[in-house]
Structure formats: C-alpha cells, structure tokens
Design a protein around this nucleic acid. Structure first.
Length: 557
RNA sequence: GCGCCCGUAGCUCAGUGGAUAGAGCACUGGUCUUCGGAACCAGGUGUCGCGGGUUCGAAUCCUGCCGGGCGCGCCA
C-alpha cells in the first residue's frame, strides 16, 4: 500500500541535503541517520528533524544555519503543509490539512487492509508457547501466547509471509513418563490396582484423562502387554492433550498455521543430517561416551551434550535439529522464537548452534519475555498447587475474559517483569481500557447504523468540510497506524498497539463530544456525510488495531 | 560467583539520544434540552534507584554500586 509518512519525510530531507550539498550551500558530511522524530508536543509539528544539530560538528557550522539550508532546499510535497526552524536547529514539519483530509477516503476504502505494507516477499515463522503436551497450558504461558500471536499479526500486516507454529515435543523421556502415568490412571479407572510412576504427573487432569479413555475405549488396553499398552494409550493421550491445548489457546484468540511434531525431526532425517553437518563443520566432539556440540569453539562458555552416553538425544539436540529444519530445510528467511525468561540461558547456545550449522544467526531472533507474578490483591498467587494441578490459561480466561487478558499482556514491553492482579482485573472490568476502546468502536457502529436507518449514505461525503480541530486530531491519529505497524515490525515490540488503540479511542470520543455527526439541522447534510466518512475511517483504524491485537471489535455492547 | 532482564507519579505502566518526562487507575470538581454517559473537560505529585562518564543534548548509550526477577544439568 503506501509508504509510511515518516519514510516520505525522511526522503524529503535526504533530497534537500543532497541538493544543498550539490549547490555547495552545505559541505559534505557522513550521514547514517536522518533523525526524523515524532515530537512530544503538538506545537512542534507532526514530525521533527534533529539532523542539523548532529551535523553541526562535522560541517563546522551553526545548527540553525544548517537547518535553514535544509529548509531552503526542501522539495515540494503535497503532504507537508508547513516547515519551520525551531529551537537550536530543529526542522519541524506539519502535515498538510488537505492531504490529511484526503487520507480519510483512503483509510475508509482500504478497510481491513488499512495499514498494510507492500508485500516484502520474505517469509517469517513465529513460534510460540510450544509447551510439552503433558498437561494443560499453564497461566504463565499466557503472556508468550498473546505476544506471539499479536506479533505474527503485525508482521503479516507489515508485508511478511507469516507462519505461526507450535512445536509439539512429542518425543523424549518426559512424554514416556506421561504415557506411563496415563496408563496407570487408565488401569485405575478400570478398577485395577496401579501406581503412578515415581516422577509421574500428579495432576487431576491425568486421572480425568484415564477415565475418559476408559469411557471411550473400554477395556481395549486392559489386557494388552504393558509396554505396548503404554505406547498405544500414549498416542491417544497425546492427541487428546494436543487437542485440549489447541482449544485452550483458541479461547484466548490464539491460532496456529502449523503444529510441528518433534518426532518428525527423526522420522524425516533432519536429526541425522544436522548431526552429520555439525561433524563435517568440526563442531562435533566425543567425550565421556557422549556426543557434544563444541560450542566453546564459537566462544560459548561450555560445550553442550547432544547425545547422552546412553544413546538418547538431549532436548537441546532436538532443538538444534528443529532449527535446522526451520532454517535449512523449510528455509524461512527469518525465524522468531518466543521464550520465557526461564529459557534465557539457552539463547546464546542456540545462536551458536545456528552458526555451527552454517546458517546466518541473524535470521533467528530469540525473543525473551519476563515472568509474570500473579497476585490476588496483596497476596501472591501460587501457580501450582501441591496436588500437581496448576492454574491454567482456561482458568484465567474464565476469570477475566480473553480480550481483557490479551489487552493487559500486550500493554507491557516483553522485557519487563509484570504483575497481574486477578482481583483488580475482575473488579475493574467495567472501567477498563478494553471497554473504553471497544466502546468507541461500538459507538461508531451505532452512528453509522442510525445514518443508514435515516437513509443517509455513509460514503461519498466531501471530506474538505472536515476543518474542526477535533476532526483533524482524529485524522492525524488514524493516519499514524501504518507507521506504527512498520515500527513494530522492525522492533518486534507489539506493546505499542494497546497504547495506540487507547489514543485513537480518545481522539474519537473527543471528536464525538465536539462535533455532532448526524445533524438534524437543515443545510448540514453535506457536513453530516463528511463526518460519516470520518467515522468510517476511524472505525477502520480501530477495527484493524483491535484485530491485530486479536481482540473483538463489537458492533454493540 | 558468572550471565540475561528490570528499577520512571500513590498504584500499574508508556517514553525510536532531542525541545517544559507522559498515559491509565485512584482522588476532587465540572460538562450535557445529546448521533450510545461504558463519554467529555479541568485539577498534581516526579532526587526518571544512586554515583561517575560519553554527547551540543541522556530516563534512553558506557561504567561502578544498590535493590528485584530469571538462568547457570548427560532435566525439559
């Protein structure tokens, strides 16, 4: 679609600089960044360029003189209304009001594609949550789930071809233990005596699972030879858990494009291939009967075991094979993994492994989100009960609702620890930013519906009639979304989304207060239609923002 | 001990090296013959954890402390 406005302003400055230098109005100098910013104060314009101060030293000139020279050489542009020199040498830009008004039609027309960038032709995979299918999704994973899904949405809007993936750890010792536990619970459900294994899964959900299998399959596994029964019942349990995880996440508004099975790494040969590759490239070592990744050759503190002396591959080895599959076999241009802070120690080792297999480690981003502390008022909430049961994502969604959950987790930057007060979340639910934003959307929908009832067309209005301060403020906010998407896609920081949504809703509510949309006054018909256009545009921007956050945009509340 | 992350208003948090550091919540007062009052407007508080450094300019970058979280397995 369109380039972001910031990019266009930067381009103007770049051209001004080139032409000023060509005409010797300014001396030559190295410039790596044009320093286009969004000023905090509206009086400083829509955009501000602080380049002149940065060039003062290399150009050995007064920054105000440099700023003036840039202004003098600035090419004309239909989106810039006014340019002026301010303070120590800022070059400030105010967007042209006519251009702003023209964006109302553009936004309304773009509809749900509003804010989209041009296709980049690059693929990104976002992998998130990926908890072991040995139990329900823990409440602690909510944050990663919400951030991951919103990030995938944003990258999609920014023009990437995105795949959302869940990595199902369906191989390894933990799964074996889980299967044995389920088998024991199944036997108990059948009325047999059976003990759950020493380190087995204590949660009640396993009892329920055993009973469920008994209900559905009767004594099918009862007289089977135990190891075969464990393995067959394991398959049933695995699929049941994966389905249940999928359901829980779906309730949170989290959907995946692909559920990748760890076993495939072995069945389709990824594991063998990457081990051979590491060997070939000199990163395989044998010691103490185990096979190691010689990570220290790449500056890591220690080597890491890939294959234990008992012949079993480690979790890390699977992960190496998994990343080999993503980067080399499936060939994503870029891969983003979202991990909890408890995995932070694995980051540099994983990056080293990517280098060792001969891929550019820059293609892999390991994003860490910090832990969440859950509180009930003043009281700290323990997340796992002694029984082995846990507070699950489902419990949280039941308690506060998916939209409020998503909004709350999205509002904070991933790298800060955060507190979640369950009591507060429920208590404030009626006086909550979530409702404030959704209410703005419902309000607009209501106005448009009323206009339709009265037979007033909501399109084709003359937007040049939109001259009120509140109207322009709203347009300015709407027009910011494409730029925001670019910024978020580059920084992978989706927490700007809720803040923007809030500002957009405020701009709308203020406009609503100041400007009557459907006027009963004779002679106001044209203005009504123009304002309806603006409502359409505001609705488009709000709805897009909400959908990027994975939240509902209600017609009425 | 070592590594990663954090410390901003009473609380929860924003703040791409720029101009007088901002929101929400909470608190107080006000607005409306109203298209949805779940709205709008006004009111104020900050040693940006502390100290150095880099810079024309630092909440932001570097560094040393202090405080908090999370890691440092042939567990996953």
């Amino acid at each position: 679609m369109s380039l972001s406005i910031r990019y266009e302003i930067a381009d103007l400055v770049r051209r001004a600089l080139d032409s000023a230098q060509a005409s010797a109005a300014l001396p030559q100098a190295e410039i790596d960044d044009l320093s286009i910013e969004r000023p905090q104060k509206a009086e400083n314009g829509d955009f501000s360029c602080s380049l002149a101060m940065k060039l003062a030293r290399p150009m050995r000139m007064n920054p105000r003189a440099i700023g003036q020279a840039i202004i003098d050489s600035l090419p004309g542009s239909d989106l810039v209304g006014r340019v002026w020199l301010a303070g120590p040498g800022f070059v400030n830009f105010a967007l042209d009001e006519g251009w702003l008004r023209s964006q109302v039609d553009a936004a309304a027309e773009a509809g749900e594609r509003f804010g989209d960038s041009q296709r980049r032709g690059a693929s990104v995979q976002v992998e998130f949550v990926s908890v072991n299918p040995t139990g329900p999704v823990h409440v602690g994973h909510t944050r990663g789930a919400v951030i991951g899904s919103a990030l995938a949405n944003v990258l999609g809007a920014a023009g990437y071809e995105v795949q959302r993936e869940y990595y199902v750890n369906d191989a390894g010792r933990q799964m074996e233990l889980f299967y044995q536990t389920v088998y024991a619970r199944y036997l108990q459900a059948c009325g047999r005596r059976a003990d759950v294994p020493e380190d087995g899964y204590r949660g009640e959900y396993v009892i329920a699972l055993g009973e469920e299998i008994e209900r559905e399959r009767g004594d099918h596994f009862l007289d089977m030879e135990p190891s075969r029964a464990t393995s067959e019942i394991g398959e049933v349990a695995l699929e049941a858990m994966v389905a249940s995880i999928r359901r829980s996440l779906s309730r949170l508004g989290v959907e995946y494009d692909n559920w990748f099975r760890e076993r495939e790494l072995y069945s389709r040969g990824d594991f063998e291939r990457v081990m051979a590759l590491m060997d070939e490239r000199g990163f395989r070592a044998e010691r103490d009967g185990a096979v190691w990744f010689a990570a220290t050759k790449l500056g890591e503190e220690k080597d890491a075991v890939l294959i234990r002396s008992n012949g079993a591959p480690t979790y890390f080895a699977s992960d190496v094979a998994y990343h080999y599959d993503k980067l080399m076999e499936r060939g994503f241009d870029r891969v983003v993994d979202i991990w909890g802070a408890d995995h932070q120690g694995h980051v540099s080792r994983m990056k080293a492994a990517v280098s060792a297999m001969g891929a550019d480690p820059e293609r892999l981003t390991l994003m860490i989100y910090q832990m969440v502390t859950f509180k009930q008022g003043e009281e700290l909430v323990r997340l796992s009960k002694r029984s082995g049961d846990i507070i699950s994502v489902d419990d949280l969604v039941d308690e506060v609702g998916a939209d409020a959950c998503r909004y709350f987790f999205l509002s904070r930057a991933a790298d800060t620890q955060m507190e979640f007060d369950l009591e507060l979340a429920v208590r404030q639910s009626s006086d909550n930013p979530v409702y404030y934003i959704q209410y703005a959307h419902a309000r607009i929908a209501g106005i448009i519906a009323m206009a339709r009832e009265r037979g007033i067309a909501a399109d084709g209005g003359d937007t040049s009639l939109l001259t009120h301060e509140a109207e322009l403020a709203l347009i300015r906010k709407i027009v910011q979304l494409p730029e925001l998407i670019e910024v978020m896609a580059a920084s992978l920081e989706v927490h700007h989304l809720p803040h923007y949504a809030q500002e957009l809703a405020t701009a709308f509510h203020w406009f609503y207060q100041q400007c009557r949309v459907i006027s009963g006054v004779e002679g106001d018909e044209e203005l009504t239609r123009a304002r309806l256009m603006l409502c359409q545009a505001a609705r488009v921007a709000l709805a897009r923002c909400l959908s990027l956050m994975g939240m509902d945009a209600p017609e009425r509340m």
